[in-house]
Every structure is written in structure tokens, then in C-alpha cells.
């Protein structure tokens, strides 16, 4: 099949076939990163702009490496180095970038809907690298890839997502992504962190972490941000770790080949105990590795690639 999308903005707008196509392409891309010479000329002469309005290490580096492995010219713009701090609007900055004819703009922004706004305003392809609390489709795709790689099939699996669902774009994209691929998603966390009406996305909800852990084939922990204490979402990190953290004790109730995931950055000792993060069930580093592969696949597909990358 061809890949006709202009933008990758969220998981809602991707079909099951498109998701499978992206994951299949990513698997082939992954092999490139394992070669001694980790570079193919596929995107030679293409320009990728990383437009990051919010601090990010993992995602920006991952896109940067992905672009470079495909020989694209890649440059990075952060909020502090852009004219945004001189008062230029997001749309004006984007239109100026567009005027320089890049092929793809990868955007990270702290406000929901920013990528959609950009995609409406410019003709350049947009990849949403995370917008506010809304969506993080490349994270969801790399999570799907990591689960598929380890479990063979996503359909029928029970996925537990535990933590601050309300503020998590990763949770939203994964609820949609995993549900779309036939898995069942159960959310766990304190009621203060459970957004109203989240069931409408297709997930079930519990306030009891043990219930979520007990039935899960995959447990995905979310980062707890300390500043949420100030908006009264939880009492103390100490109590959070005890009631909702993934400890060794709590993990004893899990099925024996459970997978532990975390989108990072992790708070050791808060939402996840160090020995669990580093333990035998953790695929947290696989997620990071697959992130590069998924992003290579998306850069390739959005610039019109249809051939298998490894034959170039």
C-alpha cells in the first residue's frame, strides 16, 4: 500500500492498516540502526525541522538520530532560540519556516491542539511530537511496536496504564492506539488524576493499582510530576509510591511474562521502584530503541517513501 497522509497528528486519524504499515516499515528500519555503518541515503536532499517548544531530550534526540540515519538534513529550533520569545506568533514562525521549504516539521508544544493548528496553516507535513495533554502519536506507535515485538500480537492483550491519566498525552494516545489494535486498556490512578469521561475513549477505569496489575499482560507506568501536589492531585510522593507505585511487592500479583513499560523520564522510587525499572520484565530501553525506528519509518513514509528502505 501507499501512504497518503500529509501529517501525523494523533492516533484517532490513523487506521489499523496504516498503523500496521508504519510498524512493518519500522521493523525494517530498525535493522539499519544495528549495522556498523548506520546510514542510508534514502532521505538525501530532504530537510527535517525539529521545532520544539517544550524541553525534550529523548524525543528530540530520537527524531534527530532518525533523520540523520536516513541522510536527511535536520535542524533543531527550540523556544528560547526562536523568535517566539521576541513575540512572534506560532503561526508566523511556522509560515516563515514553511517559506524555506522544509519537507517535514516535527513539533513539540506544551499546549494541546498546537500541531493541529500548524497543520491547518502550513502545507509542510507535520509530525506531532507531543502537544500538551492531547496526543503523542509517535510514542504510542513505538509502544505498539515494542509490545508487538515482545508478544507477537497486540490483539486480546490487557494493558494497564497507571498514573496521572489526566495530564498525560501518552495515556490518551495509547488508550486510542491499543484499543484500535484490539487490546483492552485499563486505567488506574487516584480519582483526582482520572479525567472526566475518559471511558468514552474505550478504556475501563479503576482506582486500585492492584486490580490493574493483577490482570495485565502489559503494565505502563506514567511519570508523576511533583508540581501536581500544588494543585492538590495527590498528598505526598511517599503515599503515592505506596498506593500507586509499581513496587516489587505489587508486581508479585502480575502474570509471569508481564511487560513493564514507561515513556520516561522515570522517577525512581516514586511511580516505579528501581529494581522493577531495571528488572527482567522491563522493556523500557526497548521502547527507546524502537522510538528511533518508528520515527525513521514516519519520516520516510511522509516524504513519499514506498520502497523498502533496506534495498536503497
Amino acid at each position: 500500500m501507499g501512504f497518503a497522509k500529509k501529517d501525523i497528528l494523533d492516533m484517532e486519524s490513523l487506521s489499523v492498516d496504516e498503523i500496521n504499515f508504519i510498524l512493518n516499515t519500522a521493523e525494517k528500519m530498525k535493522e539499519i540502526s544495528e549495522r556498523p555503518v548506520k546510514k542510508v541515503p534514502t532521505l538525501r536532499g530532504k530537510t527535517v525541522v525539529l521545532f520544539f517548544h517544550e524541553p525534550s531530550t529523548r524525543t528530540r534526540t530520537s527524531f534527530d538520530i532518525a533523520a540523520k540515519r536516513l541522510s536527511a538534513d535536520c535542524l533543531s529550533i527550540s523556544k528560547s532560540s526562536s523568535s517566539i520569545i521576541k513575540g512572534e506568533t506560532l503561526i508566523d514562525t511556522a509560515r516563515n519556516l514553511e517559506a524555506m521549504n522544509p519537507d517535514i516539521i516535527v513539533m513539540r508544544h506544551s499546549l494541546s491542539g498546537s500541531s493541529h493548528l500548524l497543520a491547518r496553516m502550513v502545507k509542510t507535513s507535520i509530525i506531532n511530537a507531543g502537544d500538551g495533554m492531547h496526543a503523542h502519536p509517535t510514542q504510542s506507535l513505538l509502544d505498539l511496536m515494542s509490545v508487538r515485538e515482545n508478544k507477537g500480537d497486540i490483539s486480546g492483550l490487557n494493558i494497564a496504564i497507571i498514573g496521572d491519566i489526566a495530564h498525560s498525552r501518552v495515556a490518551r494516545s495509547n488508550i486510542i492506539g491499543f484499543t484500535k489494535m484490539g487490546a483492552h486498556v485499563m486505567l488506574a490512578g487516584p480519582p483526582t488524576m482520572m479525567p472526566k469521561g475518559v471511558e468514552t475513549l474505550g478504556a475501563s477505569v479503576t482506582y486500585n493499582a492492584d486490580d490493574a496489575v493483577r490482570n495485565a499482560d502489559v503494565i505502563m507506568m506514567l511519570r508523576i510530576q511533583k508540581e501536581r501536589q500544588k494543585s492538590f492531585l495527590f498528598s505526598t510522593e511517599r503515599e503515592y509510591a505506596k498506593v500507586y507505585g509499581l513496587t516489587k511487592e505489587r508486581l508479585k500479583n502480575a502474570v509471569k511474562d508481564v511487560l513493564i513499560m514507561h515513556p520516561g523520564p522515570i522517577n525512581r522510587g516514586v511511580e516505579i521502584a528501581p529494581e522493577v525499572a531495571d528488572g527482567p520484565y522491563s522493556i523500557i530501553m526497548d521502547q527507546v530503541t524502537n522510538g528511533v525506528a518508528v520515527r525513521m519509518a514516519l519520516l520516510y513514509l511522509l516524504t513519499g517513501g514506498t520502497r523498502n528502505a533496506d534495498t536503497d
Partner: peptide, 19 residues
């Protein structure tokens, strides 16, 4: 209201906007 920008509910949750 805090940082809310639209009605609290399923639509705000889906859009990732504070309700």
C-alpha cells in the same frame, strides 16, 4: 476554573484541554 479553557467532560478529556 483554575487553568480550564473549555467545559469539563469527555470532549475536553479527548482533546487534552483543561476543563
Amino acid at each position: 476554573v483554575a487553568s480550564g479553557v473549555m467545559n469539563e467532560g469527555a470532549v475536553a478529556t479527548q482533546m487534552g484541554l483543561a476543563g
